[in-house]
Design a protein around this nucleic acid. Structure first.
Lengths: 341, 341
DNA sequence: TTGTACGCGTTATCAG
DNA sequence: CTGATAACGCGTACAA
């Protein structure tokens, strides 16, 4: 029935008071007497008044809105992060606008601009695979709009960062394979300009070197870690001589893909070729053989990202205190890597 | 370096023209001469001007923002829908703010209010399991803010709706089981106030009755379809005499849970008990045995929802044309239901 | 304790 | 083709 929105002015008029009194009453300003506050409350309710946060944002220059950019929304790890962000943001009174780059630098640039234009109070980002430079985020820095990076991060912009300990994850995974008796361990890695993949690789190399081992020549591959990339990777790895006796994959998707491919081969997982993934995607514990992997606490990373961002928005922390927060990983030992002697 | 945002007034001042001219030039208003437009463009660029959509929203009463409420963000079906929504919205110049009800009516009410307060131009909703009434959305209707419902929908509010053909999905799934020789088919269903579960149940009953069969006494269970609910369900179903020879589950989660539970039982899937799920979650094709299921095009449903919503926002369609759009499902036959005679 | 007056950045209207 | 002005709804010095 209401064709037109009630405003604080309408309430004021109805009560023969001023709009500022209404404004104050509605936000529990202690200056207002309990009596008038209640009166205002009541008619606001009756008139179906709902605050206009757009007007409020314009006035206060705070939108109570945070933006998040991820490569793909419908990927378990990222949607878990988003879920954590939403949960924390909601409790703190922030809305979340979401966008996905589809791993495209171009789209990421557009999205960043759109978020800036809508005057979000802060932004949480995990970079696209294509993203090599970070100028598109400089506007946030210049406007003192807090940024938090997670997972796929950069050193080139000063901000809080949330990652898991990819180096130790890579090392632990590799050590586990070595402990299973594997000596010829290949690695399927992502693009190295993304620190997470660089660190997983370094962890892998560290574990090998500590055990006096070498990566097999041609046994370290770089790709975008899709299902198709996994198929191509195993095809290549099967041409190596000697054949690798284990593969450490930088994500679960390629591990899955490799396991499925090997079903149509004479080689058995884990006895001929052991496989370890990274991320603990939901499918990892369901496929046969179940996939040994490194767990990555997506939901918690999202919560932490939002907490840090909101703390910075509120001025509770500042640029002097930027850190890189490392979340714990855990080696989850399953069937794809365990050899019974 | 820029401590303060450049506005159209700053540009106007720098060029000794009026703010309205700048405003018009920047939005390609044909009234402005190409010469001045270019000049304005250039200095806008130089000054690092970025439009303030908050101010624009206040003035135009259009936020170019759509809201979406889903039960859980990190669930494959819903995150796929969200992904589709984002994709379409982005191309149409809309931002998306996301929120999750966690299947709680209380939170859903709050979220709806928050979306309303932030003056979104439209809302896409899939209801919480707890949601039995829909008054919390009436404010949108009263303010003529378009709504689109998907998956978990209601008849009580007039709006466009996107669903899959749950009835025919339920029937097809059940017919398939019957064709496999099953005669004693149980059903694990969700809460019936959600149409999707009611329709899947009706489809199941229709298939049975067409084949001259009855549901086994005590063989139709209702719960919230979680992993735990699946475990409880199979425990109950195993007490029935005669034992069901098949179970049609209203989602893949319970189907999965039942299959895992039966691994620790003397009964084999599919030979003793055949299992069919619903939704085609990613894990369904990976577990052993792979799960026969009904595919549900989440991404496409998201795209369609956004298209309809945006069309209505733009006034291209109106309340006279509300429909319930039924997306195609497909029976995906896998190992969990196929009996080799 | 309440009211007045103004501005946030943009755009619609009207005038020139 | 361009400019002046008001208004969107709210919040906040300042005044009373």
């Amino acid at each position: 029935m209401k064709r037109t929105e009630a405003t604080i002015h309408d309430i004021a008029r109805a009560l023969n008071i001023s709009a500022s009194t209404v404004s104050r009453a509605l936000k529990d300003n202690p200056l207002i007497s309990a009596a008038t506050r209640e009166k205002i409350r009541k008619t606001a309710e009756e008139m179906g008044y709902r605050p206009n946060v757009v007007a409020s944002s314009l006035r206060t220059k705070r939108s109570n809105m945070i933006g998040i950019i991820v490569p793909y929304i419908n990927r378990h790890f990222f949607s878990s992060v988003v879920s954590g962000v939403e949960e924390v943001a909601y409790k703190a009174g922030f809305a979340v606008t979401i966008s996905q780059s589809n791993d495209s630098y171009q789209k990421e640039v557009q999205l960043a601009r759109a978020l800036y234009d809508s005057r979000v109070d802060g932004v949480i980002v995990s970079f696209a695979m294509d993203t090599h430079n970070f100028r598109h985020l400089s506007m946030f820095a210049e406007s003192r709009i807090p940024l938090v990076f997670f997972d796929r991060i950069t050193d080139e912009i000063d901000a809080n960062r949330i990652v898991v300990d990819d180096f130790s994850g890579g090392r632990t995974a590799t050590e586990h394979l070595i402990a299973q008796g594997c000596r010829n361990i290949a690695h399927v890695s992502g693009p190295l300009h993304l620190q997470i993949y660089d660190n997983r690789l370094k962890g892998y190399l560290a574990a090998l070197s500590e055990a006096g081992l070498q990566p097999p020549p041609g046994g370290i591959l770089h790709n975008r870690l899709t299902r198709a990339d996994g198929e191509e990777a195993i095809r290549q790895l099967l041409t190596l001589k000697p054949l690798p006796d284990a593969i450490f994959c930088a994500n679960d998707t390629t591990a899955l893909s490799i396991i499925l491919s090997l079903r149509n081969s004479p080689y058995k997982v884990p006895d001929d070729i052991a496989v370890v993934g990274f991320s603990n995607e939901p499918f990892s514990g369901l496929i046969t053989p179940t996939i040994t992997t490194i767990s990555q606490p997506g939901y918690e990373m999202g919560c932490r990202s939002a907490e840090l961002l909101i703390a910075e928005i509120k001025g509770e922390i500042n640029a002097m205190q930027y850190q890189t927060y490392t979340m714990p990983t855990e080696l989850i030992i399953r069937e794809s890597s365990v050899r019974v002697p």
